[in-house]
């Protein structure tokens, strides 16, 4: 009997200890991938796990950076048409990018690397290129310029460059979720420069994600989505832009067909999808498509929902969001 009590007490002690340890939460802020990343792990957190996450972010950055000379992407872009053996993560991201290009009819396209570099939006060299320069560079864009061969080899037509900057953060967010799940984490929220991924929920509540007001200089939001186990990614014309001498605003979401910043009635598009890399690609693609085509496209997708905000503050929601979106700024309206 004594032995039994003794065993029970020991077991209880250990359960008490392990139970409390599993509730340990930690938050980490890091600068990586040219942005600020917040890792908020709400249970099962420890230094080792957070270190593993930040190491992975650094690794993805050093593999997929457009400008770092040692990156896979830089090597592929400067191989003059030769095939380059890359890391399996880089290969996966480029392969996904190609898949999303096909799905979006080219509205999202990773082969716009030279176009991005030409405009230089967000860099010290941002400027409006000449029409001739743009026409030349648009010629280097297209899926026929990229060839992938298993396992892990990429070659580009000489002159073409790929830029996976638009989806590398999404991939990194998916990786954070994977690492957290593997460590037994049940609740976490990751913010990669405004690209949000959540794991689980906050106890019995969903996570509340604000959708940035595209017309505000500060972090105001016009609506909230309540989500669990998904990713919320927004692309907008307010993120990175410059204004030329004549007062025209040029933003960073480039239309692969025209070579100019996508010019339509939209000021922002948010995509909600359990795959953050996909949400990242399609927030760009839907922005380029514009409202009408974008709405029609999203309605055909089972695994994605979207919020479109127009320049006149009208908010359009895909069918699956009608009940989970909360408008909280009355200067915006949801048209009937």
């Amino acid at each position: 009997m004594g032995k039994r009590i003794f065993s029970i007490l020991i077991l209880t002690s250990f359960l008490l200890v392990s139970c409390v340890d599993s509730h340990r939460s930690m938050k980490e802020v890091v600068f990586v991938m040219d942005t600020i990343v917040t890792l908020d792990v709400r249970d099962h957190a420890n230094e080792k796990l957070l270190k593993k996450m930040t190491d992975r972010l650094m690794e993805i950055d050093s593999l997929m950076s457009f400008s770092k000379e040692e990156s896979d992407i830089y090597q592929v872009n400067h191989a003059k048409g030769e095939s380059v053996l890359v890391d399996s993560s880089t290969y996966y991201v480029v392969k996904k990018a190609v898949e999303y290009t096909q799905m979006s009819g080219g509205c999202f396209d990773p082969s716009i690397g030279r176009l991005v570099a030409l405009w230089g939006i967000g860099s010290d060299d941002e400027h409006v290129p000449s029409i001739k320069e743009i026409e030349e560079v648009v010629e280097t864009i297209g899926l026929d310029k990229i060839s992938l061969s298993e396992p892990n080899s990429i070659s580009l037509m000489d002159g073409t460059m790929i830029d996976v900057g638009a989806i590398a953060k999404g991939f990194a967010a998916d990786e954070m979720i994977r690492i957290a799940k593997e460590a037994g984490v049940e609740s976490a929220i990751f913010n990669l420069g405004g690209n949000i991924s959540v794991l689980g929920s906050k106890g019995s509540d969903s996570f509340r994600i604000g959708i940035r007001n595209p017309f505000s200089e500060s972090d105001e939001y016009f609506g909230i989505v309540e989500v669990t186990d998904t990713s919320v990614v927004t692309s907008g014309n307010y993120e990175r832009y410059f204004i030329d001498e004549s007062g025209v605003k040029y933003h960073h979401i480039l239309d692969p067909f025209s070579g100019y910043p996508a010019d339509n009635e939209l000021s922002g598009v948010t995509v909600i999808c359990s795959s953050s890399i996909k949400a990242d690609a399609f927030s760009t693609a839907l922005y380029v498509m514009g409202l009408e085509k974008g709405l029609a496209f999203i309605e055909q997708m089972d695994d994605m929902e979207a919020i479109f905000v127009t320049n006149s503050r009208d908010v359009y929601l895909s069918t699956g969001l009608q009940t989970s979106f909360l408008l909280c700024d009355d200067s915006f309206r949801i048209p009937e």
């Binding site: 929220i189 959540v198 906050k202 996570f207 509340r208 994600i209 940035r212 939001y221 948010t270």
Partner: peptide, 8 residues
């Protein structure tokens, strides 16, 4: 705050 994160 009212929200957990801001998508932007």
């Amino acid at each position: 705050g009212d929200i957990d994160a801001l998508s932007q």
